[in-house]
Each structure stands twice: as C-alpha cells, then as structure tokens.
Design a protein around this nucleic acid. Structure first.
Lengths: 346, 346
DNA sequence: AATTGGCACTCAAGTCATGCGAGTGCCAAG
DNA sequence: CTTGGCACTCGCATGACTTGAGTGCCAATT
C-alpha cells in the first residue's frame, strides 16, 4: 500500500514531469517541493511507488516517469479541481456568449475549449433519438425534385432532396403531408422510424403507381430520421497535436486518423464511465483498444434539452490533468447553462 | 542555359530523391538510369544545374537535392502525364459511382483522391454566386420559430431557423412568400442580396410592427444567400501529413492549422493560375506568403453546373508530382463527368 | 567541343575510448 | 522511520580516428 506521503511524491513527480518532460529524481523533488524530508526518504517512497508500478525508470539510475497507472492514481486522487482563473472564465464567456443556433454554440464551445487547454477539443452532438418530430414539410421544386424537411422539437432541422418521377398537384401534396403528419408528428425519432417501417409493410403499393412514388418519399423521410439518430462530433484544435508530437512515440498518425474518422472517438467517448460529478478520464493504455494507447481523453457530461452528451479533450498521456479537467468541467457547465437559457427563451 | 541532357539529369535527380529521400550523387544516377555516359559527365551537368540553382548540395561533397526552383522546372517540363493504371481507374469509379447529392459526391471525391495520392485531398465547392434562386419557403414552427429555406437551381438547399416575436396567419405567410418570390426567384444569388438591400432601404417599416418582423425574416434570407456566396472546402487525408512528417523541417503544425482554418487554403487554391489544361501547381517557397513554404499544392479545374471550381492535393514539396498530377487530373475529369450526368438526368 | 578516367580533397557519419554526473540502492547510525 | 554517506550504474557528451560517398578539376581521348 502507498502511504499518504507516497501520494504526495507521486503528485510531485507527475507535476514536474508534465512540466519539464524530464525524468524527475529525488533531489529535484525536495528542491522544487517543500517536503520536510531529505532526498533519501523520498527515494524510499519512490522505491515503493515503483513496486506498485506507479512510476518507472527509463533506464537504471535515472529519474522516474509516471506510468499510465500512475497517472490514473494521480487523477483519481485529485480531491478538488482548482477553479479557473478570472481570465479563463472571461475567455469562456466571450467565446460562448452571443446568439446562434445549436451548431454555432457547439462550434464556439470547441474553440473555447481548445483555446483553454491547448489540446484537441471534442463535443458530442446531443442525441436526437429521443427528440420528437414537430414538423414534416414537403416542397416541390420542379423538374421532378422534391425537398423533404424534418424538424424536431429540439430545434434540429434536416433537409434532403430527392428525385421523384412524377409531378404532384396540391391535393396530392396535402394528402402526403397529412399522412406523414399523423404518422410522425409528436412521436420520438426512434418511434418514427419504426412506424414508417410498419406503415410501408402494411400498404405495399402497386409498383410504378402514384402510391409507389409516395412510398419512396416516405422512405426518404425515414432515412433522414435515421440520420438524426446518428451521433456526430464537432472537433477543433487538431493542429495542437503537432506541438505535442514528441509525446507520441510512434507518430501522431493514429490520432489524426481517429479525428478524421470520428467514429472511433465517438465510441471511446461514449464508453467512458463518468464519476458522480459527470467527469470521466481515460488514460493512455486504457485506450489501447481504440488504437490510441498513447493518448488520454477527458470528458464531462453536459445537459442539452432532453438528452445528455459529452464534451472533452484529447491529448497526449503526458498532459496537465488538473487544468484540463477543470477547463472541461467549466466549459460543460457553461454549455449546459447556455442551452438551458436557449430553451427557456423559446 | 541547361542542355537537353541537363534536364534528363534533373529529372533523374528529382525522381530518385523523391524515391529515396537521399541526396543523389552522380554515380547513383548512372547506375539507376540508362544514360550512355560516365559519372564524370553527369558531374559536369550537375555543376551547371547547380549554377542555375535547380539543385543544391546539403553540404560540400554530398549528393544533390532538387531546389524548389528545380521542382518547378521539373513539373513545367513534364511533357505528358502517365495515364493512370487500370487499377487506379477502377478505384476512382468505384469510389465515385453511385447516387447522392452534391455533398456526397464531393466527399467521395476527396476520399478517392487521398486514396490515390496518399496526400491531403481538397475540393472546392462550386461557387453558387451565379446560381439562381428557384424557391424560397417559409415554415412556421410554433413557439415563435420560423424556418427559412432557400433553394437554387443548382440543387443546393440551405435552411436556417430564426426566432420571430410574432405568430403569422396563413395570409401573412402567403404574402411574405409572394414578396420574397417576386424579389428573388429567377435572380442570381449575387443579385438577390443586392435586391434585398434595396428593398429594405426603400420600405423602412415602423419599429415593432408586423412589417418589422417581416423585414427581420427577409434579412435572414439575405444572410443565407450570403452564405451561398461563401466558398467552402471539403478535405480528407490530413492524417497523411503525419507520415510525411520528416519532409517538414519545422513541423506539420502550420499545415494542420491551415487545414483547420480552411480560409488560407481556399485563398491559395483560388490564386493559383492554371495552364491551358486547367492544371496548376504551386511549389514550396511559392507558398511562403501563406505560411506553407514547405508544401506544394496541385490543382485542377473542374466544371460544375454553371461554375468552375478546383480539386487538388496538398503535400510536402518532396512529392511525386507526375503521379499526383495525373491523379488530380483524372479525378477532376471524373468529377466533371459525374456532375454533368447528374445535371442532364434532372 | 564533349567525354572520360584518374586522383586529390572534403566532410558527414560511424566507431571507440574516456570522463562526467545525475541518480539510485543500500546500510548503518540517529 | 529518517538520514547521511558511499559505492555503483548508466546515459550522455566529448574528442580522436576512420571510413566512404561524393565532388571538383585536369589532362588525355574521341
């Protein structure tokens, strides 16, 4: 078991190493941190920490470096996060204040977070699976094109154009609108897809008939609803990876790839388990399964209208956890508040 | 002046250097390329090339490396591009074939191009400034929200939600639609903005009146039209930069930043001048003004309905110009064809 | 005039030996 | 449990030396 002072020593090692990127030795610790003991004592503690595999020596008789496990213990024992400085707070609000729809707000959020942390910032779109369809609109555009628009009560709008062989008169359109309306309005996105499937099965129309064209349009609506269910990310600051390049032994290739793919990061962020404050961290090798074994992800839940999602940062394992966690938490809180205000002003 | 064989030598040096990343010496050249002369002769030619600053020696008595000017002469003297292999052609078509709207096609295009070249692929959205507005639609959503939709004849759709203080009845809506219709439909996007401005000046409404709300909505339409005029990019393959990291002496930071900003690259691509085949190259220091002095950009024009835009790649100065130029040209041609088919099938 | 073989010269990079010093591990005393 | 002392370990920097790829130039050849 590790003593209380042992933890202090671990803390000191993590801090110094994050600061300097140099393996840190017992002498450095007593110099930079006001332990009331001698270097030899620290050395004893370090030997214990090494037994626990919380720190490791790159080569015999050199300073120590935190292991992934060491970082883990370090963040688990962060009793409280230092609150942000006034400058940082005002930076957040100057980034986030101002009008704008959901997209705007999320983009500004990642910008703020990447600014604060110097890392890659990520925000998950709130899930719309539980949002309710509030409006379905069909607009005929001429030359056989039809614009299909779906709106949810959370304010998300999606539109898609499709080619239909036929021209519909106003009565047809009204009928289709009504049909889609009864089928979907007030239902959740999740249910909507189900109901469309059922409906299409029940009413198999004669091929090449007008009803077949209608069925095709309905199918497009279903596709769009599917898209609502898909999760999406907004990212910013990937250039920062180039600056912390030295911390990635291999190369930053897997990181950049994951950022471009998005799906890996999406999965990773979804699977992280948050503590009671909604904060979560996944450190180094814990991300091996995602090919991101040299990176860490910090995330915080935030509340969007009716659903939760996450905002976080991605960076090298050797990152400033206390500062970054504080920034992530603060931004998540601001974001939640922004979205609430937005909601109540409707 | 550089002799004919001098150019051959330059070609050999560029090829070998791109291949091996090693400075290439006279002996290597006679070994790998079937010049009918001895190494000493090559050396004489190399001395001339060095006088012309087409090649340089990293240090005295070491092989030579092409200068940016050397690369420039090299690509200017590429008489004809090797056509793509059958495998590459089928790769392109398997990527690009299939249905989808403009967004889909462009995304697949960059994917194909990044696949073919191993570089960052870029495609400019066709400019919509000259597209014509074909439809304006207003959809009232309840709780004071209004959805504004603008469609152009090139098939681009944009929508935006705005909060209006008031509720409009059907007559109001019809009037507004009619007003917007006469103002915009059939006009180009460029003209539309102008006409809205004029209109708003002429009919300054009493504040807080219904007409004021209408004016606000019209203003939103103008904003959307503005967005049509903005150029945008689709990018893919930025992870590839990590692989050619060694070619960037500084770091890939400026590259990644430019990719995230987009606006730098947009400007750069727009300013490049194409040759008679619609191909353009900007090499190394030629991009200094954009902070991309260690990178090269290759681009080709393509035709979209009614407007031209560009597709290209971005990579280290030390890249395989012949192959990449051929790939860019081929993809641009496929893309043009795809969009034409699309157009005629409407 | 162009080409060629020969040859001296240069310089980066690898190898080896050496010394230094930061840092550990352990022990015996406090 | 802490501490000072001390031997020991290695990584790393330094400097001397060697090697080899490659050039530049010249005189001879075609």
């Amino acid at each position: 078991m590790v003593s209380e002072r042992g933890l202090q020593v671990l803390r000191a090692i993590v801090q110094d190493y994050v600061d300097t990127r140099e393996p840190v030795g017992s002498k450095t610790i007593v110099e930079r941190h006001a332990f009331g003991v001698s270097a030899a004592t620290i050395r004893n503690d370090m030997a214990l920490l090494e037994d626990e595999e919380l720190i490791a020596a790159p080569h015999t008789s050199s300073g120590r470096v935190p292991t992934d496990k060491g970082y883990r213990v370090f963040v688990d024992h962060l009793s409280e996060l230092r609150p942000l400085s006034a400058a940082q707070r005002s930076a957040i609000s100057s980034f986030l204040e101002g009008p704008g729809d959901l997209d705007d707000v999320l983009v500004r959020t990642v910008r703020a977070l990447t600014q604060l942390t110097g890392q890659v910032a990520i925000v998950q779109y709130p899930s719309f699976a539980r949002a309710h369809v509030s409006h379905v609109e069909l607009v005929q555009l001429g030359s056989g094109r039809m614009l299909v628009i779906v709106v949810t009560d959370t304010g998300r709008v999606s539109q898609r154009m499709t080619f239909v062989g036929a021209h519909f008169d106003d009565d047809d359109l009204a009928r289709m609108r009504a049909e889609l309306g009864t089928l979907l309005v007030g239902r959740s996105v999740r249910d909507g897809v189900q109901r469309i499937d059922d409906h299409l099965l029940k009413t198999a129309p004669a091929p090449a008939s007008r009803d077949a064209a209608i069925a095709a349009i309905i199918r497009v609506v279903a596709e769009e609803l599917e898209e609502f269910r898909q999760d999406r990310l907004v990212l910013a600051g990937s250039a920062n990876l180039a600056r912390s390049e030295a911390d990635f032994r291999g190369s930053i290739y897997p990181l950049l790839e994951a950022i471009e793919e998005q799906v890996t990061i999406l999965k990773l962020m979804s699977e992280m388990v948050a503590d009671e404050h909604g904060l979560a961290a996944s450190i180094g090798r814990e991300n091996d399964a995602f090919g991101l074994g040299e990176a860490s992800v910090l995330a915080s839940d935030y509340d969007a209208t009716g659903s939760r999602a996450r905002v976080g940062v991605l960076g090298p394992t050797r990152m400033d956890y206390p500062t970054n966690l504080a920034a992530v938490r603060a931004v998540a809180r601001y974001l939640t508040r922004m979205l609430e205000e937005d909601e109540s002003s409707r």
